[in-house]
Design a protein around this nucleic acid. Structure first.
Length: 937
DNA sequence: GATCTCACG
DNA sequence: GACGTACGTGAGATCG
């Protein structure tokens, strides 16, 4: 607010250590570690963008010894030296502070905390307000009216309520409580056996430390009373140690802390020297903010917004919902198009008769130009009574009045393709595919923002990203449910049959909600540190995946049918055999009946009941029985394999085949996984069989068009490379750098074998543990998988951590980070929220900790391949090559390549894929080609 | 609709 | 001392 004096005090010394431990290692191109510097610049830039005060200072610790050591020499005495990787960062952070134009405050003999106390007091006395940027509990004693704290990592304010939650007492009683508790890390002794709960209880009961000490006689617990009496003096010393001195010398006057604007050129130079291009872009410095298209858009948007601002600065949460217009005249249409063009940013939604974008018919289009202001343009509605079959030839008098399709799309095209008008959609890929179809206008919509992806870029794993959920979350509004408009089950009607008033209420609201969400979420990208991820990865993936889905992949349906017949006849033989071995006829596909036969009727041992009380009969159980010569188990395993392949792949894929092209088109979902991976549905083409001979036959049915081959390019050991990078394991780095077999190398290291002495079994064990590590596996889990005792497994794990000590530390760091913040980061800065990390149930919490360990590896790999997917199509175009990307399977890209261009394409694809990230280890890509996917692999 | 099972990385 | 035990997905079948 203008006129209010507001001092921001940044506890830089405190922040440095926390950022160093919270962030994954990062280095400058010259090898200097810079993760804390990066965290600091990122924090400072986003904090300052949001909360610029009138006065600003960065506060540092000047020296290790302070006035407290004079009366208590042990205070903070055995603090370890800062980690080697942190030392060079101190000076850089000073430079950063300078570059940001932030005044620096320090004083010999005083801690940063004392200076913060001093400046806060002085500033409040002068009538201003103070925000302390820190999460240090020792500063919480300073919170009071006019003084608040702000936790820069959790990004939340710390006021009286938060302090009371932490200490159980109000801020003015914090030092009393701390005096009793002490602090092991800082060597503040406190009173033995008194922890946070007891201390708060005592202080609440008696008022302060001296009152507690004066009334020990009343304390019922003998040990507690005795400790309080015996260590009274120690408690008094503790109180002096934790009490901040608000009369420290002030090296700068308050006036000298008045905010001065940073010098952009100096700041940009500093940031570029560190390689922090994303921070440069985020701060709008220099010319790093994306391609020319987005610049054109940005300027157009800001110009339009500036023009529109005095007219309708509608609050995205406050404007009323529901007053929408149905557009049925050319004049109204022209007015909406003009309004949207002038606004520069427009909410857009399409209504269709199918969720399958490639076969959907466009039924209507919605535009939203401001919160609460939206319209629906019906195009292909039919009479409510018309059945689906009538839709194409419905009598003209039966349809509601609406604009003609072709002319309307022609009128909309300039708007939808206007590079100066940003189109905002929820789940843009769907609408873009619909509109790209020739029968639906054949419009190439752009530029586009996608609220679903904006949300996903910031909060993957925290919640879903569907429109209804986002609307409830951010707007506090539940949109009209789709089912309420069309009905459900047998009574469900096509959207084309929905009467125009109901259709408008539903459809225009979607566009309205989408635009409102954009107004709220888009500005958050910057402060969430997710802007680069969104702009450079997620946003560009929309078009890439649209093209892949439209391309599809060819499947030999005739071959599939042959395979199916073979499977059916073999299943029949097996079924007869199974019934004979079981002694009676039963449904082989029923796990319930199978369990009863094996464990009740045949009385076999080794059965396990699940939580529902049913016998478990999964493959692990049956394999165990088969190994004990139970022929029924083997027969069922064989039957199940064929059954799975037949129903899911032979029949499932056949049903999805487009009969005109013999291709299947999957739908890649972009915002479903908690790790940043894609998922593939209807059909899922990311789980096509590969591991068994029978499964390979399915894969052989995926083929290239004549004159082409399929090319498979997959990242070799990408997650283990990320492990070597993230945990910085010299042995693993060396192995990857020199192209050794990573599992053999691990075997040699942990079993202490000469390289030539590593046999298959040793390698297999090492492989199991290597993968187990990135899943957070326990000794128990390893024992189960290796079929060895828990003791032996523990020995192997100990040997592993002994050889690769960085790994244990990295695992602990990830768990701690997740516990502290609720999320972890990938190496590329994506935030992945970990569900259940704060769960009371220890089993669920342990599961969440494993997820926290796995997430950066799975998520990091996902991000690497996404970056490659953004670059490969452009590289192919630039090189004049005719290959198309068809599929992504987590670490693999499948392309369809003209036969004559195989060698050139392979080299280019590999070069792009290997070059998308610079880790401490090289990326390696293996490329194969063949007529079928099986051969290419 | 919940549960089990199994296909993939 | 007991608990349960490797991460992330999607699809099909059975059963209540």
């Amino acid at each position: 607010m203008p006129g209010v004096r507001h001092l921001v005090l940044v506890d830089i010394s405190g922040y440095i250590f926390r950022a160093f431990h919270a962030l994954p290692p990062m280095t400058r191109p010259d090898g200097t570690p810079v993760n804390a510097v990066f965290g600091f610049t990122q924090m400072l830039s986003s904090f300052l963008a949001e909360h610029r005060g009138s006065h600003l200072a960065g506060v540092f610790d000047a020296s290790r010894t302070t006035f407290r050591n004079e009366f208590y020499p042990a205070y903070k005495a055995h603090r370890p030296d800062p980690p080697e990787e942190l030392v060079p960062q101190f000076a850089l952070i000073r430079e950063a502070t300078e570059a940001f134009g932030v005044a620096q405050v320090e004083a010999p003999g005083f801690e940063a905390d004392d200076l913060i106390a001093t400046y806060a007091r002085a500033f409040v006395e002068s009538g201003g307000e103070v925000t302390i940027v820190s999460s240090d509990k020792d500063l919480m004693q300073l919170v009071r009216p006019g003084v608040q704290m702000y936790d820069p990592i959790k990004r939340r304010a710390i006021r009286e309520a938060e302090v009371a939650e932490k200490f159980g007492v109000p801020p003015n009683k914090v030092i009393e409580v701390q005096a009793l508790i002490g602090d092991a890390v800082d060597n503040v002794p406190g009173v033995p056996k008194i922890g946070p709960k007891t201390a708060a209880e005592l202080i609440l009961a008696y008022g302060d430390l001296e009152a507690v000490l004066a009334n020990t006689a009343q304390i019922k617990q003998p040990m507690r009373r005795q400790n309080l009496e015996q260590y009274a003096e120690q408690a008094r010393i503790s109180k002096r140690l934790v009490t901040l001195d608000d009369q420290a010398p002030m090296s700068l006057t308050i006036d000298e802390l008045a905010v001065r604007p940073p010098e952009p050129a100096a700041l940009e130079k500093f940031l570029r020297d560190q390689g922090f291009r994303s921070v440069v872009a985020r701060m709008g410095l220099g010319d790093a903010a994306g391609d020319s298209g987005s610049r054109a858009r940005n300027s157009a948007v800001s110009a339009a917004q500036a023009a529109a601002a005095p007219v309708a600065p509608a609050d995205p949460t406050a404007a009323p919902f529901g007053a929408y217009e149905t557009v049925t005249t050319p004049e109204a249409l022209a007015a909406w198009i003009a309004e949207a063009t002038a606004a520069g940013v427009v909410g857009l939604d399409t209504e269709t008769d199918s969720l399958d974008a490639l076969n959907a018919r466009l039924v209507g289009v919605c535009l939203a130009t401001a919160p609460g202001r939206a319209c629906y343009i019906p195009l292909r509605h039919v009479s409510a009574g018309a059945s689906q079959g009538d839709m194409l030839e419905v009598p003209a008098e039966a349809a509601p009045p609406q604009l003609p399709f072709e002319a309307t799309m022609a009128a909309l095209r300039p708007l939808l393709e206007d590079p100066a008008v940003l189109k905002v959609l929820q789940h843009a890929k769907y609408d873009l595919e619909v509109l790209a179809q020739p029968g639906n206008g054949g419009i190439a919509v752009g530029p586009v923002d996608d609220t679903m992806l904006i949300s996903y870029a910031m909060e993957a794993g925290k919640h879903g990203h569907g429109m209804d959920e986002l609307s409830r979350l951010h707007l506090g509004h539940t949109p009209v449910p789709y089912d309420q408009v069309t009905g459900t089950g047998r009574a469900r009607i096509s959207f084309a049959q929905v009467p125009l008033d109901k259709a408008t209420a539903y459809a225009a609201e979607d566009a309205d909600v989408t635009l409102r969400l954009w107004h709220i979420l888009r500005p958050q990208l910057r402060e969430a540190g997710a802007l680069a991820l969104y702009e450079q990865v997620e946003r560009r993936m929309v078009g890439v995946l649209r093209d892949m889905e439209i391309a599809g992949i060819k499947v030999d349906g005739v071959e599939l049918a042959r395979i199916g017949e073979d499977f059916v006849s073999r299943m029949a033989v097996l079924e007869t055999e199974i019934h004979r071995l079981a002694g009676r006829v039963f449904a082989v596909g029923s796990p319930k009946q199978l369990g009863e036969i094996l464990f009740d009727e045949m009385q076999l041992s080794g059965g396990r009941k699940g939580k529902s009380g049913a016998w478990g009969t999964d493959a692990a159980v049956l394999e165990e029985l088969a190994a004990r010569d139970v022929p029924l188990a083997r027969a069922v395993l064989d039957w199940r394999q064929l059954s799975k392949l037949k129903s899911t792949y032979v029949d499932g894929l056949t049903a999805q085949l487009d009969p005109r092209t013999n291709r299947v088109h999957t739908d890649f979902s972009m915002a479903n996984t908690s790790t940043g991976r894609l998922a593939s549905t209807e059909p899922n083409l990311q789980n096509i069989p590969v591991r068994t001979e029978e499964g390979q036959r399915i894969r052989r049915a995926f083929v290239a068009e004549p004159g082409h081959v399929l090319m498979s390019a997959d990242y070799s050991q990408i997650e283990l490379r990320l492990l070597a990078h993230l945990a910085d394991v010299p042995a693993l780095r060396e192995a990857f750098e020199t192209g050794q077999d990573i599992h053999s190398r691990t075997a040699a290291d942990i079993f202490r074998l000469a390289p030539e002495a590593v046999d298959k079994e040793a390698r297999r064990r090492a492989k199991t543990i290597n993968f187990g590590i990135i899943y957070g596996m326990s000794a128990f889990g390893l024992a189960g998988r290796l079929g060895i005792g828990a003791g032996e497994a523990k020995g192997i794990i100990d040997a592993y951590f002994g050889q690769y000590p960085g790994i244990r530390a990295a695992m602990e760091r990830l768990k701690e980070e997740a516990r502290l913040q609720g999320y972890v980061f990938t190496s590329f800065g994506r935030r992945l929220w970990i569900q259940d990390i704060g769960a009371k149930d220890p089993v669920r919490r342990a599961g969440a900790e494993r997820a926290a360990i796995n997430a950066p590896f799975q998520g990091g790999a996902a991000e690497i391949i996404k970056r490659a997917m953004v670059r490969v199509p452009k590289a192919l175009r630039d090189a004049g090559l005719g290959a198309r990307m068809l599929l992504q399977v987590h670490d693999e890209l499948v392309l369809e390549v003209p036969e004559a261009e195989v060698a050139e394409t392979a080299a280019l694809v590999r070069q792009v894929m290997e070059g998308v990230a610079t880790l401490r280890v090289p990326l390696a890509v293996e490329v194969g080609t063949g007529r079928s996917w099986a051969e290419a692999h």
